[in-house]
Amino acid sequence: MIQKKICLLGAFSVGKTSLIKRYVDSIFEEKYLTTVGVKIDKKLVEIERQKVMMMIWDLAGEDDFCKLQVSYLRGASGYILVGDPTRPHTLDRLFCLHKKAQKNIGNIPAIIALNKHDLCNQWSLSFAHREELEELQQPILNTSAKTGDQVQSLFIDLATQMLSN
């Protein structure tokens, strides 16, 4: 068994904690609780007969007043960037966080989750956002913590990337 640290990054209220809760505990709660500092969970997965213990660091959402504490990113083997397309500014924050992460911990496996896919009719992604997302050259998954859509794949894909890295 090997252990890997991964981080979830994103703006406030994009659903980072909900994604982890859905993945680890298979539950979804409508109630919103903001994460202060960091919250850590773990999940054991098996990728190609290799057991991987993922230590999932759920970092507090970032906004203009509360910056991400990059020290939490140290030692991560991969990270998930979470955005909420119903609120396009969260994608700007996503791009910003990606740059910050790359600057601090280098080029490590990353995956982009466009969350709240159950509300896809409310999504308002501009063309510029789409282009910028593609420029990142990272896998993009449309996830929903509420329905569980693509949540498993999100973590499994990242784990697979980390192992092959």
């Binding site: 640290k5 960091v38 850590i40 969970d41 773990k42 504490q69 020290s71």
Partner: peptide, 16 residues
């Protein structure tokens, strides 16, 4: 595992 991670996070949190 969790305790270890949290201890690290706490150290980072305090330092930051």
């Amino acid at each position: 595992d969790m305790v270890s991670a949290m201890l690290t996070a706490i150290q980072d949190f305090i330092a930051d």
